[in-house]
């Protein structure tokens, strides 16, 4: 069954501060969404709104045309995985699996046990006795095995070592193929996970500054390289988001929805054209102290 999430003009204030500012987007089953933003950009807050952990001050969030908040049919279908504080959690993973089995309609217990083995965390040891990396692996397991229609991972890699992260990414891709759902991965470490994203939401200064399919977003940006004077001349009428110089050479990064025409212009002027990674695009669009205006 297909699920559709509609977020319309959602705003949230916290202690008189604007935390989320008029954010709108939609999501649908089968797609993986990368929610990227710097620390404090509002990623976790946005995810808590999408889970019904909070009610927005303005705007609304609907799942399949129905309001999400306190919706008995929808709440079991939405799952937020976040780096919880387990300092006082003396229960073990097994007891969490039992609860999930009871309250999550599609939780796959066998798969959860299989993942525990693969990620290498003990299921009978109290969770507060596990390392941070293992707690994160345990969180990831709950998210993958619950098979909820909407699965949100907030900085799931917290403390995981590289092999475990890699194993998680592999399982993630397989799960999305076997049981397609709406998956959201929030992160500020873009380069490692960018290939998982079908679509990117970029959050900056409480606003959504990019909402586009990953390849389309990336194709909006390109680099031009050449002699300094020539680059300056050619890019005079273009939206330059970053530039650097090295020994008389200059490289400028252009971000423009009308990129085909601009690229051609630059190429015809004899400049070298290159692609921009999502990570770099993220840095250029949100970097610089308080960020891009």
């Amino acid at each position: 069954m297909n699920t559709k999430v509609d977020v319309r003009d959602v705003s949230l204030n916290y202690r008189k501060m604007n935390v989320i500012d008029q954010v709108s987007f939609t999501m649908e089953t089968g797609k993986t969404y990368g929610l990227i933003g710097r620390n404090g950009a509002g990623k976790t807050t946005l995810l808590s709104l999408l889970t019904g952990f909070r009610l927005p001050d303005a705007g609304d969030i609907q799942v399949n045309g129905e309001p999400l908040f306190e919706n008995r049919m929808m709440m079991p279908k939405v799952n937020l995985i976040y780096p919880a504080d387990y300092a006082d959690e003396s229960d073990n993973a097994k007891s969490y699996f039992e609860t999930a089995e009871k309250y999550r309609p599609h939780f796959d217990r066998a798969y959860a046990e299989e993942l525990a083995e693969k990620f290498g965390f003990p299921v009978k040891k109290p969770i507060n006795k596990l390392s941070t990396g293992m707690q994160s692996a345990f969180n990831a397991t709950l998210g993958l095995a619950a098979r909820t229609e909407v699965t949100l991972f907030d900085e799931v890699y917290n403390g995981m070592d590289a092999p475990t992260r890699e194993a998680f990414y592999q399982e993630f891709v397989r799960e999305q193929e076997r049981h397609p759902r709406i998956m959201v991965l929030s992160t500020h470490l873009v380069s490692e996970m960018d290939y998982l994203f079908d679509h990117v939401f970029m959050l900056h200064n409480q606003k959504l500054i990019a909402d586009a399919p990953t390849d389309e977003l990336q194709s909006r940006a390109f680099t031009v390289t050449g002699g300094q004077a020539l680059v300056d001349e050619v890019t005079k009428q273009m939206a330059v988001i970053h530039e650097e110089e090295l020994g008389g050479m200059k490289r400028a990064v252009i971000y423009d929805a009308n990129n085909d025409v601009k690229q051609k212009e630059a190429a015809e002027a004899g400049l070298g054209i290159g692609a921009v990674t999502l990570q770099d695009l993220f840095i250029y669009l949100t970097g610089g102290g308080n960020g891009h205006e």
Partner: peptide, 12 residues
Amino acid sequence: TYFISHGVTRKD
């Protein structure tokens, strides 16, 4: 928090 995280409504 534990049960709400498992998809239970505040009402329930």
